[in-house]
């Protein structure tokens, strides 16, 4: 993901929450306040994992009004692509990291009469910041939080003691299941439903809600922006007779500019069409990330938008 202002932070604290989960606190490097955010936001953490650049999104769980630092919780996923393992084994207090500004694709609908929250496992984290936000500005909520067992039920005790009956806990290994159908029927009109957890849970909640007649606009589920990879690649520019290497932190457009090639642009965000460039040869895959080219044009592969799109493969020759 090129573009987008970045935040330079230091890891202030790493806490082992349980056998699976670690919590990280980030503070700004210059001691200034970090931007406030809205409950449900995530940040994208950039990692340099021994030469491999990883961009992983993590929900912010700290109080959105607390601008002295951000907190995330990371569940170790040994089968995953490696970001969580890196966070668990290499990220220690004092380390410097680059993160994105907070982004929210899981915002509370502030018009809702009530917020009904269903969390599975580490999916609890966005709700932690949302519940704190509701604490500041008012708003009713009811949380149903399911985990595998008591030992991995992160933050459950704190939630229960702070919010009592509004927090309901379920443990798989004790045979407890969220009584979803019943929970859904007893909600007041104007309630919004939020779910964050494993895919299976998401599908189950969305299906059950749809069957119970919940309008789609009242059902919210977390959708992370899939941060694009930032692998190094090179491109040959036929007209200017140059070859540019696009670094992990660079866009193709930026690489052309750095090489002194006069490339047109305006929005630098894949929407305006100014930077459209013809592809002369492509031996590999174009990674289209724009909203300018139609899906058909993207599939055809004759054009690329260098402000956001990338390439993976052997050879890319552009008419520039």
């Amino acid at each position: 993901m090129s573009g987008g202002a970045k935040l330079e932070v230091t890891v202030a604290e790493v806490v082992e929450v349980n056998a699976l989960i670690k919590r990280f606190r980030f503070v700004s490097r210059d001691g200034a306040a970090l931007p406030a955010f809205s409950g449900g936001s995530h940040i994208v953490v950039e990692m340099d994992d021994h030469g491999v650049r990883r961009l992983n999104p993590y929900s912010l769980m700290s109080d959105p009004a607390d601008t002295s630092g951000y907190e995330i919780s990371v569940r170790r996923d040994d089968a995953g692509r490696g970001g969580s393992v890196f966070m668990h084994s290499h990220v220690t207090p004092g380390m410097r990291l680059t993160i994105s500004h907070p982004l929210n694709f899981f915002a509370l609908d502030t018009r809702a009469k009530k917020h009904l929250m269903i969390a599975g496992g580490i999916g609890i984290t966005p709700f932690l910041s949302q519940i704190k936000q509701l604490g500041h500005f008012g708003g009713r909520f009811e949380l149903h939080y399911a985990t595998r067992n008591r030992d991995v039920a992160a933050y459950a005790t704190g939630l229960k003691s702070a919010h009592g009956d509004r927090v309901n806990l379920y443990y798989d290994d004790e045979g407890q299941v969220v009584p979803l159908a019943e929970v859904l029927t007893r909600q007041p009109i104007g309630t919004h439903l939020y779910v964050c957890g494993p895919k299976g849970m998401l599908n189950w909640v969305r299906k059950t809600a749809a069957a119970a007649g919940w309008p789609a606009q009242s059902v919210h589920f977390e959708e992370f922006l899939a941060p694009g990879t930032g692998l190094v690649f090179s491109a040959q520019l036929a007209r200017s007779g140059k070859t540019v290497t696009v670094g992990t932190h660079q866009s193709l457009l930026e690489a052309m500019e750095a090489a002194g090639v006069d490339a047109p642009y305006l929005c630098r965000g894949g929407a305006c069409g100014q930077c459209e460039t013809n592809v002369i040869r492509c031996d590999g895959t174009l990674l289209h990330r724009d909203v300018w080219l139609s899906p058909a044009e993207q599939a055809e592969g004759a054009k690329i938008m260098p402000c956001v799109s990338r390439f993976e493969g052997k050879t890319l020759v552009l008419d520039r």
């Binding site: 987008g4 202002a5 931007p35 500004h101 982004l103 929407a271 909203v291 300018w292």
Partner: peptide, 17 residues
């Protein structure tokens, strides 16, 4: 308007346009 809206839905804090 389709493209402008898609662009705006991705608008990030700290990066005004």
């Amino acid at each position: 308007f389709d493209r402008a809206l898609k662009f705006l839905l991705k608008l990030q804090q700290g990066s005004p346009v």
